[in-house]
């Protein structure tokens, strides 16, 4: 009986050695702001209200990844972005629309579109992944278009810049997708609003 217990303990010990390495990390994240976009602004008056969930944004979760040496890693992360995303969108969107009115309440006055940014993913483990979405809606609430941007920034990139690079790339992709978005183009065309020189897709 004693031998069986020892054998079982040995098997459990061996199996636990084969499982993923568990790590946890808690970070206060303040990435660098990307440069002001070189972008032909849409000739639209926009209202931007940062959603409450982004004013003190925290992303908590787990991410499984395989390390360079083949080890499986299970990373539990707790990322505290504070109000970074609000500052980010507040700044970036000013280069993207003719005028942007920051508003806490329902937009007032002559507004063409209401801008609603969202963080769809912000994770850490085997690199950093940040994914943004931006919804453009009419003041009455009808959605014109939703564009997304973001991609994994792998861990082999410079570690101290992983969040900077992830944010920078996610915003860049979001802006280019906005520039090419067919729904927005159709909405503009229906209102005889001419805009832009498009890059090839």
């Amino acid at each position: 009986m004693k031998q069986h217990v020892l054998l079982l303990a040995a098997v459990v010990a061996l199996l636990s050695a084969c499982g993923p390495v568990k790590r946890s990390i808690s970070l206060k994240v303040t990435p660098s702001m990307p440069p002001a976009p070189l972008y032909e602004p849409f000739p639209l008056r926009a209202a931007f209200s940062c959603p409450p969930e982004l004013r003190d944004h925290r992303s908590i979760g787990t991410e499984q990844s395989r390390l360079a040496d083949g080890t499986l890693e299970l990373m539990s992360y707790d990322l505290d972005f504070g109000n970074f995303h609000c500052r980010l969108f507040g700044r970036v969107l000013r280069s993207v629309f003719a005028s942007v009115e920051a508003t806490e309440a329902a937009p007032a006055g002559d507004i063409d579109v209401v801008l609603q940014p969202a963080v769809e993913k912000a994770s850490y483990g085997g690199g950093v992944e940040i994914r943004y979405a931006l919804t453009l809606a009419e003041p009455g609430g009808r959605v014109i278009a939703t564009v997304r941007g973001g991609a994994p920034t792998p861990a082999y990139k410079p570690e101290e810049r992983l969040f900077d690079l992830a944010v920078r790339d996610a915003v860049a992709e979001l802006l280019l997708r906005l520039e090419k978005d067919e729904d927005l183009a159709a909405w503009l065309a229906a209102r005889s609003i001419t805009w832009g020189t498009r890059a090839a897709s």
């Binding site: 976009p37 070189l38 991609a151 860049a172 992709e173 802006l175 090839a200």
Partner: peptide, 23 residues
């Protein structure tokens, strides 16, 4: 890279000749 942001980033930079020309 900064001066041409957001056009020369990992996910946005032109990959083919026609894309580079259009940009």
């Amino acid at each position: 890279r900064d001066a041409l942001y957001p056009w020369m980033e990992p996910t946005t930079k032109p990959r083919y000749e026609d894309q580079m020309q259009a940009l």
